[in-house]
Computed example of a mutant assay.
Amino acid sequence: MRFLAAIFSRQGFVVLFLSAVLAACTVVVDDGPGPRPRPPRPGPQFCTKQYEPVCARRGGDRQTFANACLADRAGYRIVRDSPCRDGGEGGGEQTFCTREYAPVCARRGGELRTFPNACEARAADYRIVGGGRC
């Protein structure tokens, strides 16, 4: 009985009322849909004029650039740290080979392949590793 009398007294009522108000004042924090993706890293604003030619490719287009920075800036992927074997200036030039049959074994990456002659192997961007079939 004394407990109920204490609750219904003025001090008890104030404590009970403030407890109810604090319980009702909950804050919900919404973190949103999740972490934001990082914005793309900006490419170089300028490239040096140093001449260290690279062969680069974008899709079926192969082109020689004066340096790796220029190739990257143009959106090409570097495939060799030297000029493209067929010149590649202006991109996508076709190499014409004779029909001579002198088979060679050539490699590109980890793939070995036999070509009818060295010109056709180079035109397909393969490096000759030996004469004859693979």
Results as ranks from 00 to 15, higher is better:
L70W: 09
G59A: 01
C105R: 12
G59Q: 08
P42E: 10
P103I: 03
E89K: 15
R41F: 12
D86P: 08
G75R: 09
R108M: 00
R133C: 05
F13C: 02
D30Q: 05
C97H: 01
R57T: 07
V27N: 13
Q50I: 11
R62W: 13
R99C: 01
A102L: 13
Q11P: 00
D30W: 04
M1Y: 12
T64F: 06
Y76G: 09
V27C: 11
G92P: 01
R38M: 07
R77C: 04
A106E: 05
G88E: 06
A71R: 09
V104L: 14
R2I: 05
G32Q: 05
G87L: 11
T48A: 02
Y76L: 08
F13N: 10
L70M: 11
Y126I: 07
F115Q: 01
D31Y: 15
A106S: 09
A24Q: 11
G59H: 06
T95Q: 14
I78M: 10
G88Y: 15
C25I: 13
G34N: 11
G12I: 02
I78N: 03
R127T: 13
R127G: 04
R57M: 06
R113V: 00
P39C: 02
Y51R: 08
P53S: 04
T95W: 13
A71F: 00
T64L: 05
A74V: 07
R133K: 11
R77T: 14
R77F: 07
G92Y: 01
E93D: 15
R58P: 08
P37I: 01
R38Y: 05
V28H: 08
C119A: 00
C84I: 06
F115E: 03
G91K: 09
E111Y: 00
P37D: 01
A66E: 05
A71K: 05
P39Y: 06
V104P: 15
T48G: 11
P53Y: 02
R133W: 12
R10L: 11
A123Q: 07
L16K: 09
G75L: 04
R127W: 04
R127D: 15
Y76T: 07
G90S: 10
R41V: 14
F115D: 03
T48D: 07
E93K: 13
G91T: 09
E100I: 09
E93R: 14
R113K: 12
